[in-house]
Computed example of a mutant assay.
Amino acid sequence: MATSENTPGGASVDDSPTRARVAEAILRAGPSTAVQLAAELDLTPAAIRRHLDHLVAEGTLEAREQRVQERRGRGRPAKVFALTDAGRGQFAHAYDRIAVDALAFLRETVGDDAVRDFADHRLADLRERVAQRLSEVGPLERPAALAEALSAEGFAASTSRTGTGTQMCQHHCPVAHVAEQFPQLCEAEAAMFAELLGTHVQRLATIAHGDGVCTTHLPHPQATRPHAAEKVTP
């Protein structure tokens, strides 16, 4: 991100600190619109779009169509900007190293149960938001509604029907590097899916184990037993 531009007077201005702030804001908040980022970083619309265009061109960000649940007026949906894997990798060493060290300390001083408790606790707010969305639809519509709710949270989830249920893919995982060493994070997420859907679920692949996407099988409701999540097979 270390680039500079010339001002009208000929002086070179280093824009890389501002672009780093833009990327970090998206890291914290998830996919964001240009309007949201301009307001948070106190930048003009022209300035934020210039920085976003540069970050997209260099591969740090990607632009996506915003998913909107409620009815919209006329006009195209606003674009949201999200970190690419390459963009997220610029932050992985600092943030992930601290998280891994903290969880390792927790495991060594308190035990594995404390790590599992933490993994459950960090999902509490997400579980509440997703549960509200799922309460508005019937059992057969809940897998798709779950994917939509997760996408709104930055997980870029999608679903496809299979002969025995639904396959859900999450194309982004904000804790993948940490989950490589602490699979409790993946297990807690799968348990949350089972609780929200009232079915057992089966993890088929995870980004944390080196797969391209996190893939979860969600069986048809009539073919399931409630509230049991099968663990990931490394």
Rank of each mutant, 00 (worst) to 15 (best):
E24G: 01
L103G: 00
T60K: 01
Q66W: 08
E58P: 07
V13F: 15
G30W: 04
V110P: 02
T44C: 09
D96A: 13
D42K: 15
V110G: 00
L41I: 08
R50L: 10
V137E: 08
D120C: 09
A99K: 11
R88L: 13
S16A: 15
V80D: 02
E62P: 01
G75D: 04
V115A: 02
R76D: 06
A86G: 07
D53H: 15
L27I: 00
S12M: 12
P139R: 08
F118P: 03
A38S: 10
Y95E: 06
R127A: 11
Q69G: 07
P77S: 06
R28S: 07
S16N: 06
V56N: 06
G138I: 08
D42G: 10
R67M: 08
V35A: 14
R97T: 08
L134M: 10
L55T: 03
K79A: 13
A38E: 03
P139N: 05
L123C: 07
L134W: 05
L52S: 05
A11H: 11
L52Q: 00
R64M: 13
E141N: 09
A46W: 11
A23M: 14
T18H: 14
Q69P: 05
L123E: 01
L52V: 06
H51Q: 11
V22C: 02
Q90M: 11
Q132S: 09
R67T: 00
G30P: 02
L123G: 01
V35I: 11
D117H: 11
A39K: 14
L83A: 04
D96L: 03
L52N: 01
A23E: 02
R28T: 07
D125Q: 09
A38W: 03
R19V: 00
E65L: 14
L83P: 01
R67E: 09
D101T: 09
R72A: 08
E128C: 07
A29E: 12
V68H: 13
G89C: 09
E58A: 07
D53R: 15
R64K: 13
R71D: 09
H121Q: 11
R28N: 10
D113Y: 01
L103M: 13
L27R: 12
H51W: 02
G87H: 04
T18L: 15
D120L: 13
V100R: 15
L27W: 12
E108A: 15
L61P: 03
D113L: 08
K79F: 10
A20K: 12
A46G: 05
A92H: 06
L41V: 04
H54A: 14
D117W: 02
A78F: 12
R71C: 06
E65I: 11
R76G: 00
A11W: 07
R28P: 00
A78P: 09
E70W: 15
A34Y: 04
T44Q: 13
D42Y: 14
R88C: 01
R97H: 12
H121L: 14
Y95G: 01
R107C: 01
